[in-house]
């Protein structure tokens, strides 16, 4: 494993810690999109089917279980926790998931490595992960007040994707020497979606102002 990949995974873990910190200590999920969090549950469940079918390193098993477990936990908090669920920005979180799920599934039916359940769902999970942040970005745009932890959470998610891109560049030259269209294109699109957010996040940080996205 190269340094970019390791840093990417650690940043992804940090994202989850930041979000759980907000939920558990502040008892708030204000500004967090339940739609995006539910999409992540679907992404992890469909991608990690191989937990049961092929050999994984201990690192992979632990990380996969952490991602599945925490994503379900976060959705549980947002939907059912007595206090937390009342802070959910329900009226602003209006993006319809199935507008994302359905096209990604159809795309996976046509674009995959092998026409098997595991391969189609693997492709589906990559396509869905690429666009899963959209409901969150829309919610941020509608929020008057973006608190620091929410801004940091989305920023770190973007950083994790940038590190994965660097990891692929490294792996292409050092290990693989082959083109991997499905993860690369979806990963690139996923990262590009953060460009606008990055711009405003860094600007607000430089000017020491509160983060606000133009509507």
């Amino acid at each position: 494993m190269n340094l970019f990949r390791l840093l990417g995974d650690m940043t992804h873990l940090l994202c989850i810690v930041v979000l759980l910190l907000k939920i558990r200590t502040r008892k708030s999920c204000a500004g967090i999109s339940l739609k995006t969090q539910e999409l992540y549950v679907i992404v992890f469940l469909t991608r990690y089917l191989d937990l049961f079918t092929m050999y994984n390193s201990l690192y992979q098993i632990v990380m996969k279980l952490v991602f599945v477990g925490t994503s379900i936990g976060i959705v549980w908090y947002m939907r059912y926790h007595k206090v937390v669920k009342q802070t959910y920005s329900k009226n602003e979180d209006t993006f319809r998931h199935y507008f994302l799920i359905l096209p990604c599934f159809v795309l996976a039916l046509f674009v995959h490595l092998d026409f098997t359940v595991v391969e189609v769902l693997w492709s589906f999970s990559l396509y869905l992960e690429a666009v899963a942040i959209l409901p969150q970005l829309v919610l941020l745009q509608r929020s008057r007040n973006i608190d620091t932890l929410t801004g940091d959470y989305v920023f770190l998610l973007g950083v994790y994707r940038v590190l994965y891109l660097l990891n692929w560049v490294y792996r292409f030259f050092m290990e693989i020497h082959q083109i991997r269209w499905i993860p690369w294109v979806s990963g690139f699109i996923q990262t590009a979606l953060y460009a606008d957010f990055f711009y405003y996040y860094i600007k607000s940080w430089k000017n020491r102002e509160k983060l606000k996205l133009p509507a």
């Binding site: 990949r5 390193s57 991997r180």
Partner: peptide, 10 residues
């Protein structure tokens, strides 16, 4: 192989 398909990634 699974590695070349980047299946070893998360």
């Amino acid at each position: 192989s699974s590695t070349s398909d980047l299946k070893d990634e998360l």
